[in-house]
Amino acid sequence: MATLTALSNLAKASIANSGAAELSVLVSIDDIQLDTHFKDLFPVNGGMVSRISESMQKKGYDTSQPLHVWKERMLLVDGHHRRLAAIKAGLREVPVFYHHFNSMEEALEYAILLQTDRRNLSDAEIYKTLQTLDSLKSRGRTTDDNEPRQQGKSAEITAQKIGISRSKVEKARTIQNKASPEIKAAVESGTMSIHAAYSDTMKQIGKKNDSTKKTPVQQWISITEQKPEENTPVLFIASSSNEQSSGYIHEGIYQHDIGQFETLHTFLTGLYWISLSALPTKPAKLVDTGDETDV
């Protein structure tokens, strides 16, 4: 016969380092410490606390549902609703089931396991759970050449821990990294699903990419198709019979009466031109000193 414990579900019995199953013990509520990693993992439902408290006042604490505590740190891992209900009912001591964990991440994974065994997590709870697990994993993380592959593997492992699909993990992480504050707040409050938030986030990213696309630089314009406005500096490619000037880019002003470009020192014929305002950044003026730029 299996050793009896205070838990109704023997599959969840904690195994100590010695290999022996531990029984729950009565512990003063004041001795149990809280940590935000566990306290904020699953939001407390005030209505549920009141219902449990009323039951405790009538029937006493249900010893088949002890609090789960990390023994070495006396941290409450699971049972925040029951703890608050016990305090509200005026209880001074509660049954505690002790556990031994090697790390904060291991303890959090156990807390998540207990919750997923009891019920299906809401999208808001899944999102919060991922944030907590990822924040722990990011500590001490180093850059790796195989980062994309490792991220995919990480998503698969995390999905198995929470009991959801890898796709949902990746969508939630996209929301966490790229969504607007409004979308994140909607997921956290439970007013928007992860799927809907991911869809809206990708639309926003698409719009942002469209708006930040660079306007292509204007192409060279043939002088036979269109002539520059008078008194407007432009760049032009010279086609003068003067071999020292022909084929180079110069800056000048087109003189319509003579059909040539006036530079600092001379007049040159040009076949193609482009407005200075069409360039991404206006360059320093090109002085016609003989040091022209070849094209």
Rank of each mutant, 00 (worst) to 15 (best):
A159P: 11
E170M: 08
E182K: 10
R149G: 08
Q176M: 13
R119W: 09
E105Q: 08
S193T: 13
K128M: 01
T158L: 14
L121Y: 05
N177S: 13
S154A: 11
L133T: 05
I112M: 02
Q115L: 02
V187R: 00
K178S: 15
T191Q: 13
A186D: 15
G190H: 13
A107L: 03
T142H: 00
Q160W: 00
P148H: 00
I164A: 04
G190S: 10
I175Y: 05
R118D: 13
G152C: 01
L136Q: 10
M104K: 09
R173F: 07
D123C: 02
Y110M: 14
R119V: 04
P181C: 08
T158N: 03
A107R: 02
I112F: 06
L113D: 13
I157T: 10
T143R: 04
M104D: 12
T116Q: 04
E105C: 02
T116M: 01
H195V: 14
L121H: 04
K153D: 11
T158P: 07
S154Y: 04
S122D: 08
Y198L: 04
T142Y: 01
L108E: 03
Q176V: 00
G152M: 09
K171A: 14
A185N: 15
S154P: 07
I126V: 15
A197L: 12
N177D: 14
S193C: 05
L136G: 12
I164M: 00
L121S: 05
S165T: 13
N177W: 01
T116C: 05
E156F: 14
E105W: 01
A107C: 10
T142M: 03
S180H: 07
S154I: 06
D145W: 09
T129M: 07
P181G: 09
E106G: 13
Q115S: 14
N120Q: 06
E125M: 01
A111V: 12
L121M: 05
E106F: 03
Q160K: 13
G140C: 00
T116K: 10
D134M: 06
Q151I: 06
R141Y: 04
L108I: 15
A172D: 10
L121P: 14
L130G: 02
N120R: 03
H195Q: 11
D134E: 14
N146D: 12
R166Y: 03
R173N: 06
S193P: 07
I162L: 12
K153H: 06
I194F: 14
L133N: 05
Y127K: 01
S189E: 02
T142F: 01
E170Y: 00
E106D: 12
K128W: 02
I164C: 03
E182H: 12
I183Q: 11
Q131R: 08
R139W: 04
I175S: 02
Q131K: 06
R141W: 07
V169A: 09
Y127N: 05
R173T: 12
T191S: 15
I175G: 11
L113T: 11
E125N: 08
L133R: 05
L136P: 10
S154N: 08
R141Q: 09
Y110K: 03
G152W: 01
I183N: 09
T143N: 05
N120W: 02
A185F: 14
N177F: 04
T129Y: 03
E106P: 14
D145Q: 07
K178Y: 14
I126F: 01
